[in-house]
């Protein structure tokens, strides 16, 4: 019995002492931002606007999930934005131009991301190219390929539309939940994209906390050499982490294509920075070893809530960048403070 007690009391203790502090802080920040905007504008805390915020978080949130894994290994992935675009274009090509079934097109889109991530991983772990450089290269390669592939239809760079496949847009923008929620909240028209974000987050959280891959992600980020000396095939697992990150980018690609009802080949540059910002605000340390999915999701929500709120307040947009930037710095500084104390 005594051991059982110990087992249950111990994690609570450690959680309070470590990660939870920042997670709580980030969550508190989100609440504060929310409350402040609610007071400042009657249009902020409406059901529709909240759904808008959720929807605006979907793509960046899913990208950030993948980036979380990579950053926990003390790596970085700059290619997520353009890999997302490449995946979107691949889905467009298969579904819209080649007329393949939608599920197959989605699978190909997601797998495109996985393959790009796998290549990132191989370059990093086998060829020993630093992650920053390897993924910077992949960022450009994916961007170029997305543009090239988009010329296949007409010979000029052109978005690929999904007008012939109305089902595709419904995937993200339709709502499987609405019929279920209708009796309780008839207005609450929660798009599938939001649902997918949450399901993806749950999967990611499960992988990070409960699976071998998650364990080695943390172990590698905490002490790569020690992990290697423990007999873990570090190169292989690292590759897997980047492939997983790429898979999330692929999913984000399908999501953005569905939302915009088109694969926009010129999009995606700069999305990686928003994703990294979300991860960092969520308390994941760039030096590796620690980070949580919940934190990342909160971080992504902080960014989109701020963006939305400042728009609603009609604050000049330039200031939005200033505010987001300050929050990123503050989040990292708090992380440093916390670590210095412990």
């Amino acid at each position: 019995m005594a051991t059982a007690e110990k087992v249950f009391s111990a994690p609570r203790q450690t959680i309070l002492r470590s990660n939870a502090a920042q997670k709580l802080l980030a969550f508190a920040a989100l609440i504060v931002i929310f409350v402040v905007f609610s007071f400042l504008s009657p249009f902020f805390a409406t059901t529709e606007n909240i759904v808008g915020i959720l929807l605006a978080t979907a793509v960046n949130g899913v990208l950030a999930l993948g980036v979380t894994f990579v950053i926990v290994t003390a790596g970085i992935d700059l290619s997520v934005g353009t890999v997302m675009t490449l995946s979107a274009v691949m889905t467009g090509l298969t579904v819209s131009l080649a007329g393949w079934p939608v599920p197959l097109g989605i699978l190909i889109g997601v797998l495109t991301g996985s393959v790009a991530g796998l290549i990132n991983g191989l370059i990093i772990s086998r060829m020993r190219v630093p992650p920053f450089i390897a993924t910077l290269g992949m960022m450009m390669v994916a961007r170029g390929l997305a543009l090239v592939l988009s010329t296949l239809e007409t010979g000029t760079i052109k978005p690929i539309y999904f007008n012939d496949v109305p089902l595709f847009r419904q995937l993200m923008m339709g709502s499987v939940l609405s019929p279920l929620l209708a009796p309780v909240a008839p207005d609450f028209n929660l798009p599938n994209a939001v649902l997918i974000l949450f399901v993806a987050a749950l999967v990611a959280a499960f992988v990070l906390a409960k699976t071998v891959l998650g364990r080695y992600t943390v172990a590698i980020g905490s002490n790569e050499e020690a992990t290697r000396l423990s007999g873990v095939g570090v190169a292989g697992w690292k590759t897997a982490v980047y492939a997983l990150g790429g898979t999330f980018s692929g999913l984000a690609g399908v999501m953005i294509a569905s939302r915009l009802n088109s694969a926009q080949p010129a999009l995606g540059v700069g999305y990686e920075l928003d994703a990294i910002a979300a991860v960092v605000i969520g308390g994941t340390s760039l030096s590796g070893g620690q980070g949580t999915i919940l934190g990342t999701i909160i971080g992504a929500f902080i960014i989109s809530t701020l963006t939305n709120g400042l728009r609603i307040m009609n604050v000049p947009q330039e200031w939005q960048f200033v505010v987001t930037g300050l929050i990123v710095i503050l989040a990292v500084y708090l992380d440093i403070l916390r670590r210095r104390r412990s």
Partner: peptide, 26 residues
Amino acid sequence: IVNVDYGAGDHLKSTDLAKAVIQANP
């Protein structure tokens, strides 16, 4: 003219931005 905003020509960002503006100005 209640609002002039800039969306970098990015379809997704412009969408979320315009939504917020419409919410704020019923």
